[in-house]
Structure formats: C-alpha cells, structure tokens
Design a protein around this nucleic acid. Structure first.
Lengths: 280, 280
DNA sequence: GACAATACATTACGTTGTAAGGAGATGTGG
DNA sequence: CCACATCTCCTTACAACGTAATGTATTGTC
C-alpha cells in the first residue's frame, strides 16, 4: 500500500519542511514546557523505519522510542501522513552532492546515481513514498538540483532532458527498491535469497517441465547470470564483482542499465564519449 | 507498504499458478459441494483491487463480493499473500503480445513498453507487488519473453541486454506508478492534480521565496513544461499531445525517457537507426 | 442410518491511526 | 498568592485488518 505523500495540512507540513531560521512561538504560553521537538520525532521515526520498515512504523512505536505515548506526538506533528513527509525529506539530507565536482557530466551522473542508490538502500522506506504529489522539501530538491545541473552541460533540449531525468530516477529507484525488498524479504522470512531461488527453481521445473521450450528467450537472457527470471536486479549473488574496476559492490545489472541510459544521452549529443563502441 | 510476493506455501501457490490441464481432486469426497473456485475468487479480487486499490482489498470485502464470508475463501486460497500472487499473474493475462509482430526491434520495444504501461494503468495495484522474489507465474513470463525475444535480434551481449531489460522495466513501472498514484490521489482526496499543484506552488513561494536562486537548474529544467519539481511523470496536464504523431494520450515524458533508452541500445549496435541525429 | 469429511459462518485476538475526554503542569491577571 | 485559561500528555475507545479457533450444516461412503 503505497503511501501517498503531500496529503494533509499542506500549510503546516510545508512550514515544518522549510523552517530554517524561524524559531518557535517565542516561549510565553501557559502550560507545561514542550519536552520534544518535531525534528526529534522525525529522527526517532527515521531510525525506526530504517530498522523495521514503514510497516513497522506506528505512532505507538515512535512514541515508545521517545518515552511518550502515541498521542503525545500529535502535539508536534499533525498526523502520520505528515510525519512520513517530514521523514522523507529529512532522509535526503544525507546526500553529499559530491557528484557536482565530477570531471564531466557523464561520470557526474554516474556518481549521482550511485550515491542516490546508496541513500535509498540506507533508507529503503523512502521508496514507498509516492513521487506523484511530491513532498517538495528542501533536501530532496538538492538531489534534484544536482542532477539538473549536471545534465545542463549536455546542452540537450528540455524534452530530452526531462525524459532522461525521469528514466534515471526510475532506474535508480527501481533498482534500489528491488535490492531493498530482497533484503527485507530475507530478513522477514528467514530464507536467504539464494535458497529461495533454488527452491523456487526446483518447484518451477516440477510444475512447468516445458518451461525452456515455452520461454526460450527468457532462459537464454537469464543465461549465465544467476538464473531465475532475470527481470529484477539480483543482489550480487557472489558472481562477477568489479565489472570494470570501480564498481565495488555496486550491482552489475544496475550499472549496465545506467550505461545504456548514458549512452543514449551521449549519442544524442553527437560526441559519444564512450570507449566501447563495438560493431556487430 | 509494499506487498512482498512469493511468500507462503510456495508449493500450493505455484501449483495454482501453473495449473493448466489438471482438474480438481476428481470430485468424490464427502461434504457439501464447492460453490466457488480459486479463479472466481481471483477474478473478484482483481475487480475489487481495480476499483479500490490494494488498500481496499480485504478478505471480508472479497467474500462479500461473492456472497460469502471472509473465512469461506480460505477453503480455496491459502491466505491473502497467496491470493495477491495469483491476482498479480492473472492481471498479466491481458497482455496481447502484438509487439512481437513489429517491423524492427526498436518499434517493437516501444510497443511493448506502451502496452505494458497501459496494462499497469488498468491494474495499478500490480505495481505494489514486489519484483524481488517474483511471483513466477506463466502470464508475466509471457510479457518477459516478448521483450527478451525482441532484444535478441539486437545481438548485443547479455550484460548489456540485462541492463536494458532492467532499465526498461523500471521506467515503465515507475512511469505507470506515478501516473496511477496521481490518479488515485486525486480520487481519494477530491483535489485534482492541477489544483493541487497550483496550491502547492503558492505555498512554496510563500515559504521559500528564494527558491529560484537556490535551485536555478531545477527551475530551468521544469521550465516550459507543467511546472513543479519535474522529477516525476506528470499525467498529460492538458499541454502538448501528439509529440510525434503516434503518441495519442501517451505521456510525453514517458516516451522521451524511452527514447533515450532506445538510443542507448541503438548506439551500442553501431547501426543507429535513428532519424534525429543532431550535433551540438 | 451412522459416520467422517467437507464448506461455510461466527466469534475472538491483537494490530492500526486518531477522536474524545481527563489529569496535571505552568504562565498571567487579579 | 490565587483563580483560571492554556497547554502537554495520558487513558480510553472505535472501526477495520488477517486469520486461528470453534461451531453448524451438508454431503458422500459404508
């Protein structure tokens, strides 16, 4: 059940998101002092979501983590939907923006994608927040700005760039999502990926013995790589690491997909700054 | 909360998924006759999910739709997780595979992507089922096989093709997801997309008056197109349709991203069967 | 007709987000 | 210093969820 962001109380949420210099209501009201802050709640919630996933994120659990009841949080945060929005943007604060120092746009975008993927893997629940009706917070905007800046130097028309941005985001998010879900599935069910796949393969052979004849191209495409259906990014099943040297631990399929995308952009610039132009 | 498929009772689920010719247990047991079938339940559940989303899919609701109680379903289906797996594969039965008749691989892949996107838009809840630990049913396999067959004729190495498959799936799924979620958000909140964006933009200007200076590249990239952050695929906000003639109602950003991907593959084949090779 | 097996219903449990209402703490005006 | 209004935080309560446990009615075989 995808969480749809940007839901309630747009006003308050936006103000919380972008609150930089402004301080609170100047401390002169009756009643007990506030013992929490919105950002402390957000931090606690992020910690919890990192460990348990969005499914494990309940107001009760966040409250408990802070030594409060669930309802105590409602003083600082309008509701769960808004809390998730705040968490979403805050998670993007990790982004370093180192990619902006890259030598050329191509390696810069590569760096951008890898760093964003790492960020998603650290905070997988971020991927469950919808991109339609975006949260529109400052930290995610920094991530977007970095990519926009890099692509600007390609001098390609806006139409192409918007397409590329879309495809890049989708590839990064999709790859990270699959990797994260594989990890989560393993943790939750106790069955490691490798074992799950062999078990499933056996079952498949039993139940569909004519698989190879019905789906020859699928079988061939999955081919040498770690078997299975092949549609998703497998999390480095022990095979080929260091595809080209720099890719330490970065999934080979992820990089290959990225390369296709970058080739598409390169070819559109007419420069084709690529070493590996094979023919036939 | 992403539903992780391929969970329980692998045996029974796989048997239900691939059950083609085999009939039931030959009807010779005591007790009342079965008044339902697994596929009737799956069909009812798909109808419900199409209308209400996965969040609205409850065993009680499916039961009610069939004039039964929630628990009655457990005679035919091991549990909700398995039901979702069955729904997932069944939804892919709509896929026509017309793309396989295309003139060349490039237009074939384009057709493939557009048809798959349409399928996802008809059954948006499919996108909430994880691709890690795939369901491995026969109908989705047909979709995968179609793409694999098309890409085979590029004669590119497997590494590149697996990357391309991954990126293509992610772009199609991501685009469809965003479009579907935008629609759902509009339906659920009663606020249409256009209104939401203008409201949000106003708010953003209030709360971050220096936005344009802080994020110049973002602003420029969003540029002429329908404003906002620009990271996601907007659902044709009334502007430019028929980008190149054939794109009736297909989102321009989706097609542009697809084009970058196809260009990447074309350039790798060395043929570059592209008309629009601009330089500079 | 007895009996075992099956289909389906009812009830119950521990979750969830949050509305409602109450208890205790703390500022300000008299 | 004492109401008193205001604020924080708690407890309680509700409807909805998946499904285990249990009960009831229906059907086949002996």
């Amino acid at each position: 059940m995808a969480v749809i962001g940007g839901r309630g109380d747009a006003d308050l949420t936006m103000r919380l998101l972008w609150a930089g210099s402004e301080r609170g209501p100047s401390r002169s009201a009756p009643g007990p002092r506030q013992s929490l802050t919105a950002s402390a709640i957000v931090e606690a919630a992020i910690g919890l979501a990192d460990e348990e996933g969005l499914a494990g994120l309940s107001m009760r659990a966040v409250g408990e983590r802070l030594g409060r009841s669930a309802m105590a949080l409602y003083t600082y945060v309008p509701g769960k939907a808004e809390l998730v929005d705040l968490m979403y943007d805050q998670a993007h604060a990790d982004f370093s923006g180192a990619c902006e120092e890259a030598a050329d746009w191509r390696s810069g975008v590569l760096e951008w994608a890898v760093e964003l993927r790492d960020l998603y893997l650290r905070h997988p629940w971020v991927l469950q927040v919808s991109h339609a009706r975006p949260v529109l917070g400052p930290h995610e905007q920094v991530v977007f700005e970095a990519l926009a800046g890099l692509l600007r130097s390609t001098e390609l028309p806006g139409r192409v760039l918007r397409g590329a941005v879309s495809a890049l985001f989708h590839h990064v998010r999709g790859s990270a999502r699959t990797a994260a879900e594989a990890g989560r599935a393993a943790a939750e069910t106790g069955v490691p990926d490798r074992e799950w796949w062999t078990r499933r393969s056996t079952l498949l052979r039993e139940v569909a013995p004519d698989f190879a004849e019905r789906f020859p191209h699928s079988v061939r495409l999955a081919g040498d790589a770690s078997a299975g259906q092949g549609g998703g990014t497998r999390d480095s099943a022990g095979a080929e690491r260091a595809e080209r040297g720099w890719a330490r631990g970065v999934d080979a399929v992820f990089v290959a997909g990225l390369t296709v995308l970058l080739d598409g952009l390169s070819s559109a610039t007419g420069v084709d700054g690529r070493g590996e132009a094979s023919e036939g």
